[in-house]
Structures are given as structure tokens and as C-alpha cells.
Simulated assay, not measured.
Amino acid sequence: MKKLGLATALLLAMTGAQAYQFEVQGQAEHIDNTANDKDFTGAVQGTYYFNDVDSSKGPLDEAAFLNHASNVSAAYSYGENGQEEDGRTRTANHTFGVKGEAYVPTKVVPVYASASYNHTITDNKAGETDDNGDRYALELGALVLPNFLVAVGYTSVADQVSYDAFNIASNGVAKAALESKTIADDQDAITARTKYVGGIDGTNMSIGFESGLVYGEATAFNLGTTLYLNPKLSVGVSYLESSYAGSPDKALGANVNYFITPAVAVGASYVNANAENGSELDTQTVGLNAKFRF
């Protein structure tokens, strides 16, 4: 009976369950830059929602946001970078993160809050001292209009080599690295972001917009838009630029995501971060991702 119940649950998840409470997602990226074409990164994230998430309305990819679904999650990212022929610059980064998000209804508007902690271990392949970095972040906001979130936050970075595992899992390593370089030695940063998802009248399509600002040692902003051609299929573009004194300092990205069933999704991404002034870090990344809900 236990085996039958497990098989039934798996079948429902694979063929069309319209509600879920767990989500597991993973991604992997190949990183090609002028210095080395053997860099890579991978990330996995698991999320538990306190209540069932109804995915029967709107884009499947945004079901949790549209449901104002409070949750807790954990993430891990692993990546290698540096010149292959020079062991002194070859490093491996392990980043662990935990995060909580809450949507609280009020008499005025729904209120949003999040808190996260990330820890990065930089393993030097040449046997030099490993580096450790901690990152704490808090965010407060409100849905000022239906499906329109405005939030501001504070991030404290105890070490400049400290990444956000959730940012890597969602947006890729190139953008996460630019964000880390923007905060840099300042150790404290103010953040702000907006997000909107809404239907296009007379169609089964939807449109999404996101924007963000990071003010640390330098300043970075990002813009993104996603067109949901139907609840299953979406295409998106994004742009990130930072004022930090280095190159590359901007990244242009594109992605496509498709839900094979309401519980299983696959996707691909591409990011181009062109370097200037003869830098060896002219970078392109190609990524694959997948999600499973149950």
C-alpha cells in the first residue's frame, strides 16, 4: 500500500497536479571567458511553502508570487574559476544559504518581508589559506497594487568574497558576481526592487517586469522583462550594470523556460558580460535549469 501511495503521488505530480507545497530546482552553467573556458558552476534550491500553492491561474512560473505564498528555502552553489594553467588563481567556491519569505495580509495592503543568510567558502587550489565570508540580508515591502511588489532592504557582507546562493540559482553566476563586486569592501548595502506580473487583456499571455538597485561601495541597477506566451512557456531578457571600478561591469541576459507539466519545468539561459580595457574576463555563460514541484 505504501508503494502504491508513493507511485500515485509521483504520477499526479508528473501529469498535472494544480497545487504544490514543495519545489526543488537546479541549474548548471558553463562559463567561457578569455582567460579560461573550463569554468563552471551549479546550484540547487529547495523550497517549502506553508500552504498549498494554487498553480491553476496565471503563469506557472509565478504561481508562488501570485499566491503570496510564504515559504522557507535552502540553497547550495558550487563553482570553479581561475586560470587552469595557473594553480595560484584556481579556486572553488562553496556557498550555502537559508531564506524565509512572508506575505502578511493587512487592512491596507499585503506586507512582504524576507530574511536570508549565506556563507561562502573559497577553496584555494594552490594550497593557500581558504577564505570564508558571511552575508546577512533583510527586506521589507508591500504589494502596493495587485501583483506589484515594492521592497527595500539592507545587506551586510562580512567579507567581500561572499555570494548569494539564491541569486546564483535564479539569475546565474555572472550577475551574482557583479552584485558582490558592487558591494565590495563597503560591507553594507542598501537594496531596492520592484516586481510586477499581470495578464494581457484578451489573451492567455502575461507580462512580467522586474527592476533592482544595489547601493554599496559602488552602485548597480538591473532591469528585466518576461513575456509569458502561455501559462507554460516564457521568454525573458535582462540587463545589469554596475559602477564598480573593474570590467566586465555589465551583463545582458536572455532565458527561456517551459513547463512540460504543471509540476516539471526545464529552461535555458545565456549571459554576455563583455569586458573592456583589455581585461581577460570577457565572459559568456550558458546555463540549463530544471524545476520539480510536488
Rank of each mutant, 00 (worst) to 15 (best):
M1A: 12
L4V: 05
L6W: 11
T8W: 13
L11G: 09
G16V: 06
A17H: 09
Q18L: 13
A19F: 11
Y20A: 02
F22E: 09
E23R: 04
E29R: 06
I31Q: 05
A35P: 11
N36E: 03
G42T: 07
Q45F: 03
Q45I: 11
T47F: 14
S56W: 01
G58D: 01
D61S: 10
E62M: 13
A64I: 03
F65C: 01
H68Q: 15
A69V: 02
S73M: 03
Y76C: 04
D86M: 13
T91E: 12
A92R: 13
T95N: 04
F96N: 04
V98L: 05
E101R: 13
V104K: 14
V104Q: 12
V104N: 11
T106C: 05
K107V: 09
A113K: 07
A113I: 12
T122F: 06
T122K: 07
K125G: 02
A126C: 11
D130M: 04
D130H: 10
G133P: 00
G133A: 03
L138T: 06
E139K: 07
E139W: 13
L140N: 04
A142L: 11
V150E: 02
V152L: 02
V157C: 09
A158W: 10
V161R: 13
N171V: 02
G172I: 01
A174C: 04
A177M: 07
S180N: 08
S180F: 02
S180H: 04
T182A: 01
I183L: 01
D185V: 14
D186K: 09
A189N: 09
A189I: 03
I190S: 05
I190T: 14
Y196L: 15
D201T: 11
G202Y: 08
T203N: 06
I207T: 02
G208D: 09
F209K: 08
E210Q: 05
E210C: 06
E210N: 13
E210P: 01
S211F: 05
T219A: 05
T219L: 04
T219R: 10
F221V: 15
N222L: 10
L223A: 01
Y228T: 00
L229C: 00
V237N: 12
S238Q: 15
L240K: 05
S242W: 08
A245K: 12
L252S: 13
A254L: 07
N255Y: 07
N257S: 11
Y258M: 00
I260W: 06
T261A: 08
P262S: 00
Y270W: 04
N272C: 14
A275S: 05
E276D: 09
G278E: 07
S279T: 07
S279M: 06
E280A: 15
L281H: 14
V286N: 04
V286T: 11
G287D: 01
A290M: 14
A290P: 02
R293T: 02
